[in-house]
């Protein structure tokens, strides 16, 4: 590992959600470094620049202005440089269509945003400490959606 901390990025247009997200990691006391972006364009601009530090886990909201999560997912998966990033879809809804589409596009896990802070912390800590290699090998449609 190049760093002794886990590099995490969140792309979400909702200010409250970004706040919950960073608060949760603050309280979790894990050695993580969290970057947030306000929309898909900002995210992709960052990821595509030369000196970018690519994250281990990318949390991607689906419903964002300018460039939505699906488009970002598509671009990231078609770029070999970013192939190793574990992508967690982080969305309010968990409609069949969205789950299906992101699974097919190669996202690693689908998280429906929890409605309590306690659960949020639990979910985030589980996701960040997840063995991605192991998870990805056994990935199927049933375990793609993270059960709370």
């Amino acid at each position: 590992m190049p760093n002794d901390y886990i590099h995490i990025i969140l792309a979400d247009d909702d200010e409250d959600d970004r706040l919950f997200f960073t608060d949760a990691f603050d309280e979790l006391n894990m050695s993580t470094k969290v970057n947030t972006f306000n929309d898909g364009v900002e995210l992709m601009d960052y990821l595509l620049c030369e000196e970018a530090i690519l994250p281990q886990v990318l949390f991607l909201d689906l419903n964002m202005p300018k460039k939505n999560g699906i488009e970002c997912l598509n671009e990231i998966k078609s770029n070999s440089k970013m192939a190793d990033i574990a992508i967690a879809i982080y969305s309010t809804s968990a409609s069949e269509e969205d789950i299906e589409e992101t699974f097919v596009l190669g996202a690693n896990i689908y998280i429906k945003k929890p409605s309590s802070f306690k659960q949020l912390k639990k979910v985030l800590s589980e996701v960040v400490s997840m063995n991605w290699q192991y998870h990805t090998n056994g990935l199927n449609k049933d375990n793609f959606l993270m059960r709370l």
């Binding site: 409250d16 309010t92 809804s93 929890p114 409605s115 309590s116 802070f117």
Partner: peptide, 24 residues
């Protein structure tokens, strides 16, 4: 449906999360 699933749920979820923050 989409509004119900996404836009309506979002503020509600936030209310719940904020309440949980308050309680905690």
């Amino acid at each position: 449906n989409y509004v119900a699933s996404h836009d309506l749920q979002e503020p509600l979820r936030k209310i719940q999360t904020f309440i949980s923050r308050l309680e905690e």
